[in-house]
């Protein structure tokens, strides 16, 4: 059990009436991971995370955290988990400090004034503890959400779209906070997002889910291998280009009007361009994307 993954999810299924939200979601999170949970809107990210946190009952599959089944050890597990699900919703009629105290007490945390003020400082809300939540911006609430998630010193932090609705500086600050938690405090973080760029910056491992299924799972560096590209080629003679590419043995992924998508290594790009020009084909655009990035953009566009 000592070497078991921190989170193990196998064959997760969930339906709401006739709508099957999750078909087969699986992934593992190792201790110390900043784990990206990636998928287009409506892919099943929030449903999966809510199941992980015991907010929703799953129909099938296995969920284990810290080596224990969620179904039978929920309270013990949640003692070691801090989370923000969607946006943090607090009691607007209470102060930030009182809100922290309430959620801290319910998690069995130290809710001394010193501890609460220290946590408010950590998330950048120094001196705002006495202010009512009604006057807080979205960014400030998000910071307070992080504070309540950390107050009981959890080993695992689950953050569902933590940068949604934040301004650019807020997004940068939130990313830095997450990275500090991982690097300085050794926390394991699960982070959901519909933005690949965000996961790429923060996470070391990730799962991609779409339509309730796991479609990719592994190390970010492997999944986003910079050498494996998909090239989107736009020329003045698309039919001739397609025929030439097939003749030369290039596997064509798709063609939309004058744009042809094909896999290509980064090193081969200049030679491809030169060969097309030499063939008398007018190249208007040669846009390369990494394979997973291209795939993910297709998913997002489909959604």
């Amino acid at each position: 059990m000592a070497n078991a993954p921190l989170v193990e999810v196998e064959g997760l299924t969930k339906s709401y009436g006739k709508f099957q939200a999750l078909h087969n979601v699986y992934f593992n999170v190792e201790k110390g991971d900043v784990f990206g949970f990636l998928g287009p809107n409506g892919a099943g990210k929030s449903t999966s995370l809510r199941i992980l946190l015991g907010l929703i009952r799953h129909d099938g599959g296995n969920v284990k955290l810290f080596g224990y089944p969620l179904g039978t050890h929920r309270s013990e597990i949640m003692r070691r988990v801090g989370c923000i699900v969607e946006k943090p919703d607090f009691y607007k009629y209470l102060s930030a400090r009182k809100n922290l105290e309430i959620f801290g007490r319910m998690a069995g945390a130290d809710v001394s004034r010193r501890k609460l003020e220290g946590m408010l400082d950590f998330v950048g809300l120094h001196g705002r503890g006495g202010d009512k939540l009604a006057g807080f911006s979205h960014g400030m609430r998000q910071r307070l959400g992080l504070a309540q998630a950390l107050l009981h010193e959890p080993d695992l932090i689950v953050l569902d779209e933590p940068t949604t609705g934040l301004d650019p500086q807020g997004i940068i600050d939130m990313r830095e906070l997450i990275l500090r938690l991982s690097r300085e405090q050794g926390k394991t973080v699960i982070l959901s997002s519909h933005l690949l760029s965000e996961i790429e910056i923060i996470a070391n491992r990730m799962v991609v889910i779409n339509k309730g299924r796991t479609v990719q799972f592994g190390a970010v560096s492997e999944l986003l291998n910079a050498n494996e590209l998909v090239v989107h080629l736009e020329t003045g003679q698309p039919d001739r280009t397609e025929a030439w590419l097939r003749e030369k043995g290039f596997p064509i992924i798709s063609r939309h009007d004058a744009v042809i998508a094909l896999p290509c290594n980064r090193d081969e790009l200049p030679a491809l361009n030169a060969a097309l020009v030499a063939e008398g084909i007018d190249v208007y655009a040669l846009e390369s994307r990494r394979k997973l990035e291209d795939y993910f953009l297709q998913l997002v566009n489909q959604a």
Binding site: R79, P88, D89, Y91, F103
Partner: peptide, 14 residues
């Protein structure tokens, strides 16, 4: 309605 039930239900209480 406020959304705080979601946060309350993720505490280590039954």
């Amino acid at each position: 309605a406020m959304g705080s039930l979601r946060m309350l239900a993720t505490r280590p209480v039954t």
